[in-house]
Each structure stands twice: as structure tokens, then as C-alpha cells.
Computed example of a mutant assay.
Amino acid sequence: MEISAKEAILRYENGRLENQTALVAVEFPLTIYVNKEELVTIVCTPEYLEDLVIGFLTSEGVIRGVADIDEIEIIESTGHAYVSANFVNKFNAKYRSKRYITSCCGKSRENFYFQSDASLLESYNETETTLTIPAIFARMNEFEAASETFKRTGGVHNAGLCTADEVLLSRMDIGRHNALDKIYGYCLRNGIEVQDKAIIFSGRISSEILIKTAKTGCGIILSRSAPTELAIQMAQELGITAVGFIRGESMNIYTRSDRILMK
């Protein structure tokens, strides 16, 4: 399925109007059913959908992990994902039942999280991973250079998983949260440990992104943009290193600066 589409536009540039075509990001509604019951509809970019489903269900606490899933069937033509699970957290599944999640990250989605995340403070395991400042700049440059869909459309967010030496994995989506769920789902499916790595991100570090980062087990998040006040408070409580405004030769280290080394 295509992740971008051509649209006719009227472009103004250098004092002239011209008829042109532009690439725009595709929005795709995916309705997830768990054990034949409708759970949620997510508006997303239509790629790596199985990773998205696994990452979403695990990070939302509907299942405990990939071992709880017996089968996933994705029907792209109708926008449905059917999940057969041998274990379902009935409270979380009921609470989330038939919710519609847009590609934006507004207050309604943040409320969707907080009511079921009280146990997170007790379950988070801190990482001993450190990164040098030169490594952070290098990884951000590598990450942005590979963001081809953003360069073409300007309409998606990017998330990645990196070490000090390389960006291991990168995913994009119209929703910041979806991009991170795709990363998490891929790691769950392939048994990739994330505790000794860092999340690298293109957009704002909101409270929901901070929560999802904590749930993956990563203790470091790097972003080209800024965190919110609530995200900083959560990062302090959870022991997560939040680094933002990584641009050129500058960055802001908001929390747990002990993990960031000069060289």
C-alpha cells in the first residue's frame, strides 16, 4: 500500500503562481479486533502494520508481550487487523474498547493514557547506558539523513532506535505515537533488547511519548524538538534522560545528565 500520494496544488513562489503536483502523506484508519471484539481504530501510515499492532497492544497493557499473541491477520483492503490472543488484560481492553485515535496528539489522547499508567513508576528499570555528545550529534545527523518520506512530504514523524555507534532501526508515521509503537513492535517480534539503547525522535517529546519510551525500557530519548513541562516531570520521576533541541552543534539536556558524557 502506498504511503504517499500525489495531489494537484497551486504553488506560489518568487512572485508567481503555478499549477504543480505535491506528494502528501497518506492517512489510513486501521481497526484492531482482539479475539473478535473491536478494540480501537488507529489512524496511521500504512506500513509495518503488524509491528504497529504488537507495539500498541503491548505498550497499552492490553497484552503482556508478543507471546500472548497466537495470530495476527492484517487485511489492508478493508483496514482491519484481527488478533487472536491467548491472554488479554480485560480491564485495559475494556477501558480502551472502541476508541478512535487520530494521528494528532492532543489532550484527548493524553487522557487515554494516564488512567492506567500508575504502576509504571514501580516497573521501570533504569539503564546504565551512556552517550557522548559527539555520538549524539552523529546519530541525529544519520537519523535525519535517512528520513526520506519526511523530505518528500513534510507530513510524517520519525522514530528510531540507536546505539552510540549507529541508528539500528527507523520508522515513520503520521502519528508520533505510531512511529514509536512500530519500533517497539519490531523489537518485541525479533527479541531485540532496548534497555542498552536510546530512542531517537524527530518531534516534540510529549508526556505520551515519554510514557511509551519508559514502557519499552529505554532510559534515554533524543529529539530534534523540545519536551513539554509534563514530560520533563515524568522523565525526572522515571529516571529517563531527555535530550532535546539537538540541532547543529547544540542541545538541551533536561533530565539525568549523568548519562551524557563530554567525550
Rank of each mutant, 00 (worst) to 15 (best):
S4C: 08
F143E: 11
S250K: 11
G219F: 02
A164M: 08
L23E: 14
R11P: 11
E71N: 15
N111P: 03
E229T: 10
S207W: 00
S119Y: 09
L168T: 07
S207P: 01
A235W: 00
I136A: 12
Y95E: 14
Q236R: 02
Q195T: 01
Y33E: 07
A118T: 15
S223I: 00
G154V: 06
G185Q: 01
A5V: 14
G239C: 05
E73N: 12
H80S: 04
T127M: 00
Y48T: 05
N86M: 08
A164W: 04
I9Q: 08
E126H: 07
V40R: 02
N111A: 13
N92E: 11
G175V: 06
V24I: 09
I220W: 01
G203P: 03
R224T: 04
K107T: 08
E148P: 01
L30P: 03
Y12G: 15
F245S: 11
S223R: 02
F56R: 03
L121A: 14
E237L: 10
L52V: 04
S108Y: 12
K151D: 09
A146K: 08
L261W: 01
P29T: 04
G239E: 03
S123M: 14
G15S: 13
L180S: 08
R247D: 12
F91E: 14
I220A: 05
R176E: 10
R96V: 08
Y186F: 13
E110S: 11
V167A: 02
T163D: 13
K263L: 13
I32K: 01
Y82H: 14
E76R: 15
F91S: 10
H177G: 01
T45C: 06
I3R: 02
A5L: 14
Q195P: 00
N19T: 13
S59R: 03
E249R: 09
F28K: 06
S223W: 03
N141G: 15
A67P: 08
L52A: 04
P29N: 06
D68V: 12
G191S: 12
A145Y: 09
N14L: 10
A85H: 10
L222E: 05
